[in-house]
Amino acid sequence: MKVEINVNGTATTADVEPRTLLVHYLRDNLGLKATNIGCDTTSCGACTVLLDGESVKSCTVLAAQADGLSVTTMEGLSDDGTLSHPVTAAFRQEHGLQCGFCTPGMVMAAVSLIEENPDLTEADVRSGLEGNLCRCTGYHNIVRAVLVAAGKDPDA
């Protein structure tokens, strides 16, 4: 079947099997490899992207379900390849990443979280990231990064 999805502001289209997962559409059809796959059970959140502005796990969305909608991946946060987005800038500033594998999903989950509630506390960030697993950072600096990106003082 044919799907048409606006990805990072660009119209894309492809003829895909109905069972094609959105994450595979992004990675294999479009070559956008930032979005990673970390599990089979909608648990880890490494594949998190924005669908019409809201975080979703792209391993649990069919490309067909995104037909006609807009998707944003981490590649779409910057036009010029720099850390111009407050979330990516804060992740570097606060050392919110190590191996980088969970990072694109974590960043997109954070973007959605801040969009929905910029007035975040540490507890809000922790519960707001419950759908994203990281094995390297112990979340300490990820939580700080999200607070910084939301304009909060992580040491408060």
């Binding site: 909608t42 669908l51 975080s55 979703v56 989950a109 419950e130």
Partner: peptide, 9 residues
């Protein structure tokens, strides 16, 4: 229920 991503879908 679930997590924010699950609740979005």
């Amino acid at each position: 229920v679930g997590d924010p991503q699950v609740r979005h879908r």
